[in-house]
Amino acid sequence: MDAERQESVTETIPLFPLQTVLLPGATLPLHLFEPRYRQLAVDLMTGTVPDRRFGIIAMRSSGVREVESPDHVHAIGCTALLGDSERLPDGRFDIVTRGERRFRLLEIDNGRAPYLVGTVQWVDDAPLPDGAGRAVEGLRDAALSAHAAYCDAAWHRDSWPVPGPETGPGPLSYLLAADCLLPLGDRQRLLEETQPLRRLRMVSRVLRREAGFLSKLRAVPAPPPELIQLGLPASLN
């Protein structure tokens, strides 16, 4: 499919607005307690929603209690694939999701289902420029070094698994960012960037900055609520 046609294709998917950003390839556990999102879980498991996929999109303000228009959320979100799930005795759900593909939100329909439904266009990375091999190698080394510095400052462990050389610059940038606790604004900017080399450069800069903060503060960052444990309410749903 050519870029022009791809840009014009739209689909509808269920939406789950959150005060966090899901990155492609990242894992996000969620605790679903509000009735409409319990229903979303049922629809995902029974096939009413095909392919066990829905969209996660970050809210622009923590003060928004009810998302009613695209203005209440960021323009770019990420689809989540439902993985493990557990229905609790009182009807709540603990689920684990994995980020897949970015989308641009065009419209929100709050009357089609108990939960929000969005009309979206898919957002893919631009191709790498010709002759980018040397630039990729340099940026990859810088990003891995920044990631190691962050992990050393944050978690104080001796070693971390290094992504293999087959991991391209686009997936690598998300993989490294997903492994660290970054502010929502930084994660959203990384999600929106469609130039893989620029995004890899952004990851290096952000991780170096955060590692410096942690070293100066001599503090270990607390995980966001979504990642503490599945048994606790993890989201404003």
Rank of each mutant, 00 (worst) to 15 (best):
L176K: 05
Q188I: 05
L144Y: 03
A75Q: 10
R201E: 11
W122P: 01
Y174P: 01
M1P: 08
R205D: 04
S235K: 02
G99A: 04
E34T: 14
Q39R: 13
R38T: 04
L181H: 11
D94R: 08
A177E: 04
L190W: 02
P225D: 10
G131N: 12
N237P: 05
D124Q: 11
A148K: 08
S85L: 07
D109A: 12
V21R: 00
P35I: 11
S235H: 09
C180N: 00
D2G: 15
D90N: 12
V117I: 13
D109Q: 06
A149P: 03
T46E: 13
E100G: 01
T20M: 03
T27R: 12
R38H: 01
P183D: 12
L40T: 03
L116G: 05
R52T: 04
T46I: 08
R101H: 13
I57T: 03
I56G: 00
L200S: 03
F54N: 02
D130Q: 12
P233I: 11
E166I: 00
G83S: 10
R65Q: 14
R189H: 12
R157D: 11
T194E: 00
V67C: 11
G118W: 04
V162T: 13
Y115K: 05
Y174R: 05
E34S: 10
L128P: 02
R101Q: 15
A41H: 05
P70K: 11
R208I: 03
D109H: 03
S215E: 09
A146N: 02
G118Q: 05
E68T: 07
Q6T: 09
G138S: 12
L200H: 02
V21M: 06
A178L: 06
F16P: 02
L88I: 01
D84R: 15
R65P: 01
V123A: 09
E192R: 10
A80T: 07
S85N: 15
A75P: 07
C78S: 08
E226S: 15
Y150T: 05
G170I: 03
R157Y: 15
